[in-house]
Write a protein that binds this DNA or RNA. Structure first.
Lengths: 154, 154
DNA sequence: TACATTTGTGTCGTGCGCGATACAAATAAT
DNA sequence: ATTATTTGTATCGCGCACGACACAAATGTA
């Protein structure tokens, strides 16, 4: 019975993605710790370093996160003096997020992060096979999706 | 300056994994809701359906989760009458997790989940390009890792 | 046997992540 | 001009995730 096979942990597509996602966030941690930020906060900073003065709404859209996740997160970042939160003049509903000098300063430290992460992934913390397996699983899955898509169109 | 490029959200490898992971958990939600469970709880059930009478430690290893995540989770599942928690006789430190009849019963409902998830992914909730992009990003990344690995060996 | 170390499980605190809900500002409709 | 709807942000509650830490049972050592 093929249903039995589908319910095995090893044949789950989402599980490796879920696992690797957490694994990667953990790999970032030591470097983000020195900057005093978390991974989601790092993502917000990436957005702001690319384009300062962004509304909360724009951040939620870029990061695919809900307001009720981002709002408290931004408040913590404001408390840490990384950003400023100001109501927009043109639209009183919007809150404009801007980097403080401290937030801008962090970019220099952060510029080392991608390379360092690569190094740590090459050594001990994350093993390559896990990532490879994720890739294989995704490939199989996309194949299934493609076939199904074709059937649907017919 | 290539560091500038590396710090763009679009060139981040972990971000699509992180996003797609949340996206997939959300896709599961309506089906798991009808079963009254969450995604991590579903993962625990997958383990138990494959092999009943498993210690907490074995679950943490299979799911790559910490005890301090799994312990409260199992307590909630016990409260929901899905599992039983009993101290092992052979080793008083170990806690053996077993399915209740209700927990076993859920397997029948769950057997529909993988197919239904595939259906929902084909329709509206998740768009294929997101997944495809994740695959592409992973491929590039693995390429970089491979090259670096070779350099290291030399 | 006495003591040190390891192992398995658990609590606590903090930060997400999100559904449900609230609320005021902006916009649309009548 | 009033009223209804939409939009942008935020609070609340719950369930993870995990680092730090606690503690008892099991194991190793002198």
């Amino acid at each position: 019975m093929y249903k039995e096979e589908q319910l095995k942990l090893s044949s789950q597509v989402c599980f490796p993605i879920y696992s690797v996602s957490r694994l990667l966030t953990k790999a970032y941690k030591p470097y983000l710790d020195t900057m005093g930020i978390t991974y989601p906060q790092y993502l917000v900073l990436l957005v702001l370093w690319e384009n300062d003065a962004v509304t909360v709404n724009e951040i939620t859209k870029k990061l695919y996160l809900n307001t009720n996740t981002v709002s408290p997160l931004l408040k913590r970042m404001e408390k840490a003096h990384l950003i400023e939160r100001n109501r927009s003049i043109s639209d009183e509903r919007s809150v404009v997020i801007q980097l403080t000098s401290q937030g801008k300063e962090l970019k220099k430290v952060a510029s080392q992060v991608p390379d360092k992460l690569l190094q740590v992934l090459l050594t001990t913390n994350v093993n390559l096979p896990d990532i490879m397996n994720l890739k294989d699983t995704l490939e199989e899955w996309i194949e299934v999706l493609r076939e199904q898509k074709i059937k649907e169109i017919k």
